[in-house]
Design a protein around this nucleic acid. Structure first.
Lengths: 213, 213, 213, 213
DNA sequence: TATGAATGAGCGTTCATTCAT
DNA sequence: GATGAATGAACGCTCATTCAT
């Protein structure tokens, strides 16, 4: 797995770094959400963070570092909340719970989530790779749970269906964050229920062999 | 429905405008795909279009106009191809065909599609609304087809399920354009088949009243 | 010999480039002389050149390019004026004339000369090498003339003395430019005469073998 | 003579001031040599000196103070070594010894010497004057020795020749420090011998009256 | 109609200096 | 006395846009 990138800071006090970066992330997310990464200036980020432009640059080296920090902090949160789940042995129940937790999490962090996926393309190459890796981890988790359900006979899906379904689940999460305006009639609970229902019904059929198998 | 926005041009000859703008769109899509809207300069667009920066500004007023032109031309193409379908009376067959056409179309215009959804947030307010309207039209088409199937009893779905499913179909299209790297094992044919299968199976159950209603 | 470095310009009209760069050089020399390269801002250079900061950057890529242009133009001038001399066959007369021309030239271009040698250390690596090469050419010219005089018996100097004397002549030129304030009692004519006299008398002795030869 | 400038310090303990400034000078010379005054940051100076940026500013008021301290310490050293000479009554022997000592000293302190003459132009006005005064003292010393030799009949030089020769000797010292790369074939001993020889031969002729005297 | 030189507001970033601890 | 986090003026440079030719 890709290692977390160290963002250089000329400040030595680690706990201060953490505190200031938390301020930065909070400020930056709001701005990035509102006007995007490119239209947000470093001065605005500094101001929204509650300190001066000089201080901002004591904690990062480039503007892109801020974006990376935002993306990384989201994944830290995602992992923290998903690790709380006991996900070691996959079963239908576990899968359903995982979906529920995942979509709830996205609901809680909507802004951050949108920023991450809308702006991460502006990350420098290696930072982008790191973020993409994290995304793949997420998809893989769903894939693993589905596979284990299939292995235990709880669901009937071919491997290729599983992979697609895993991507499915992931992308529907993005949908909840990105297209809230189109889904404003739904509560997160309804959304979760319907997604789960679709998935389970979608899996109900016999395994498909593609091309009229 | 939102009216098409007029992009001002200081040139009179309509057919020339059309020709130059076509050049512009072709050049811009490549560049936007490669480096995004913000990292692409107007000079680069002019060069890729085969004329000078001065000429570029004879046919648009702002850089954002180029982006609007790109987005608009994509929708023109989408409509052209979807209108070829006889979609007046919805039925399961029509729905299935519509899905097929829609995903094939996205497959053909992958670059343009990605650009449109990745960069359209940079559009000025009213242009963005226009593009979003077009998107909603697309979703509405699926919604209408599904509703008509439900009305005729071909499928069993509650209105709220239909709406979500329509969004579903739309977003899965984006997935095919955006996440091709994660789906490189699938052909567009496989993708269409599996999506259709999931949808039909997902609809197989009885109508759900949310939250155990 | 090191090739002249091409300074990129986004302007195409060669004669315009030449004209604008001449303006730039004139403006920059004054400023560099007055406050040095580092204390001079690009905005000041633009203003002194008679155009805007944007225009400045149409004709160069970096601030260091300006310095290079200054240095290079000096050498062009030096060569133009020294090539006027018929210097093909060295003789005492030719040597004396060369010295005279060289010091006169420095006298005429005092400001430029000072700037070049005071600031050239701020040039990027390869540009610095180019300028240093030009300097060495100049020293080599003196070395050649002295050697030819020695070969023809007009002067009596060992090779090592010749080399040092060549550097001597070069450095005394710098002295005239740099230490004018200390030499304000002298006219350029006096300076030339005395330098020539010192040199000729200095060469009058027998060839020295170093260390009590 | 110009009085030594007091550099303010908020620290009281004089011996501590001396110690810290010695650290500063040592660190700064290395850095200035390597990258010049302007490209060296105060943070780097502090680090190279072995203390924090805050501490640096306890012993100076501005960055230029550091440069002044460097220049001043060099002259202290120069004077200390030249005062060891008994130079009260000038004679040819004393002159020759003075030259020898002076060039040897430059050879020993090459780095410092280069820094002083390359960067002193960045000194504030009054500090620059002080350093220039020190330089003039040096030239005057040679001038005095030459004059005394002329008075005693040991050499034949007109006053104007003497002044120029004094500058000559001074500038050749700079040459040894600045152009070592061009003189790498010579040892300091050879250099001293040749310079001395040139000078004495140059003085051998009859007194010149300028302009065809 | 087409060109491309000119413009300057505004960006990301640096760094000398201060001052609370 | 020593520290180093905080500050913000100022820098080099870019680029969307204009307009004379």
């Amino acid at each position: 797995m890709n290692k977390k990138r160290e963002i250089q800071s000329s400040v030595k006090d680690e706990s201060l770094i953490e505190k200031r970066r938390a301020q930065m992330i909070r400020g930056a997310v709001t701005l990035f959400k509102e006007k995007g990464f490119h239209r947000t200036t470093t001065r605005e980020i500094a101001k929204a963070s509650g300190f001066s432009i000089g201080t901002l640059y004591e904690y990062i080296r480039t503007k892109e570092d801020v974006l990376y920090l935002v993306c990384d902090s989201i994944y830290d949160e995602v992992h923290a909340r998903l690790d709380a789940l006991d996900v070691d042995t996959g079963s239908l129940d576990v899968l359903i719970t995982a979906i529920e937790h995942y979509y709830s999490l996205i609901d809680d962090m909507q802004d951050e989530y949108v920023v991450m996926y809308q702006e991460s393309k502006s990350l420098p190459k290696d930072a982008l790779r790191y973020v993409l890796d994290k995304e793949m981890e997420m998809v893989s988790l769903f894939e693993r749970l589905l596979t284990e359900c299939a292995d235990s006979g709880e669901i009937a899906m071919a491997p290729k269906e599983i992979k697609l379904a895993a991507n499915h689940l992931f992308v529907q999460g993005q949908m909840w964050a990105f297209r809230r305006w189109a889904l404003r009639d739904y509560t997160i609970q309804e959304f979760i229920e319907l997604q789960t229902k679709f998935l389970l019904q979608g899996m109900a059929g016999e395994k498909t062999t593609l091309r009229g198998g």
